[in-house]
C-alpha cells in the first residue's frame, strides 16, 4: 500500500507549551488508522494538523512537514486542502438549516448551483452515510430535529458531499449512545472502501474493532504504531502495553 498522507518531524506548540514532539507517521490509502492515547496526549491536535484546523488557534506554531500526495500542505491553500481532507467533529455540529441545505452547503460553497446535481449529491451522500431511508421524506426540515446519532451521520454525509480523499474523525462517537455508536462504526468500515479514514478515539475496543493501523500517543509523542492486531496482541513498548491493558495512571 502507498501512503497518501504523512507527517515528517512534526512539532507543534501553543504559545510556549509544546504539544507535539517529532511525529513521524505515514497514513495508508483506503485504510482506517486509529490514534489512541490518554486525554491530553495530543491526538486531536495531531488530527487537526492534517487539514490545518489549527490555523484557527492563535499562537499555534508548527514546524516540520505534512505531505499529502507528495505536496507539503503547510504551504498550500487551507481552503482547497479542506475540500480534499474533510473532518467530522467530536460533537455533532449540523448547521441550523434544513437537512438538505446542510448536505448541499459544501458543494454550494465550491460553486455548484445546478439543482439537479445538488439533488444527486444530497441523495448519494445521505445513502453513503446510511441515513437516506430515515430522512428522505423530511429533507427540508431542520437538521436540529434529528437524534444525536442521526446528526452525526448527517455530519458524515455532509463531509462526503464535498467528495474528499481523506476523512478525519475526532472522537465521532463520544457523544453518542451504544446503538448509535455501532451504526457509525459500521459506517466507518464501509467508508474504508472509498476513503482514507483517520480516527481519534479514547475507546480502545473501538480502535480494535474498526482500524487497520493503530498509533499510540503519550504526552505529545508517538510511542508506537503498527497493525492493529499486533498493537493489541503484542505491543513492543511497555507504555503501550500498560495503556491497552488498563494499567495506566
Amino acid at each position: 500500500m502507498t501512503s497518501i498522507l504523512s507527517t515528517k518531524n512534526l512539532n507543534l506548540s501553543y504559545g510556549s507549551k509544546q504539544v507535539l514532539y517529532d511525529i513521524d507517521l505515514p497514513f495508508e490509502e483506503k485504510s482506517v488508522t486509529a490514534l489512541i492515547g490518554p486525554s491530553g496526549c495530543g491526538k486531536s491536535t495531531l488530527l487537526r494538523c492534517m487539514n490545518r484546523m489549527n490555523d484557527l488557534i492563535p499562537d499555534c506554531k508548527i514546524t516540520g512537514d505534512i505531505l499529502y500526495r507528495g505536496e507539503n500542505i503547510t504551504k498550500s491553500d487551507p481552503v482547497l486542502l479542506r475540500r480534499k481532507i474533510g473532518m467530522v467533529f467530536q460533537r455533532p455540529n449540523p448547521f441550523p438549516k434544513s437537512i438538505y441545505d446542510n448536505i448541499a452547503y459544501g458543494p454550494r460553497a465550491h460553486g455548484t448551483k445546478d439543482v439537479k446535481i445538488l439533488d444527486d449529491i444530497v441523495e448519494n451522500s445521505l445513502k453513503g452515510a446510511v441515513l437516506w431511508d430515515e430522512v428522505k421524506d423530511r429533507l427540508h426540515e431542520s437538521a436540529l430535529g434529528l437524534s444525536g446519532g442521526q446528526q452525526q451521520r448527517l455530519c458524515i454525509a455532509r463531509t462526503l458531499a464535498v467528495n474528499p480523499d481523506v476523512i478525519l474523525m475526532d472522537e465521532p462517537c463520544s457523544a453518542l449512545d451504544p446503538i448509535a455508536t455501532t451504526k457509525i462504526e459500521q459506517l466507518i468500515l464501509d467508508l474504508k472502501k472509498n476513503y482514507t479514514v483517520i480516527i481519534v478515539t479514547h475507546n480502545m475496543q473501538q480502535a480494535a474493532r474498526i482500524s487497520d493501523i493503530t498509533g499510540f500517543m503519550y504526552l505529545g509523542k508517538l510511542i508506537e504504531t503498527g497493525k492493529t492486531e499486533l498493537i493489541f496482541s503484542n505491543p513492543q513498548e511497555e507504555l503501550t502495553e500498560r495503556y491497552i491493558t488498563g494499567r495506566f495512571g
Binding site: 484546523m53 484557527l56 481552503v79 460533537r91 455540529n93 460553497a109 465550491h110 464535498v162
Partner: peptide, 17 residues
C-alpha cells in the same frame, strides 16, 4: 457556537462563506 465555524471551514468553505 464555534462548532459552526469549524464545521464550515472543515468543509472547505472560505471565511467569508
Amino acid at each position: 457556537p464555534k462548532d459552526y465555524t469549524e464545521a464550515s471551514l472543515g468543509l472547505g468553505a472560505t471565511k467569508w462563506q
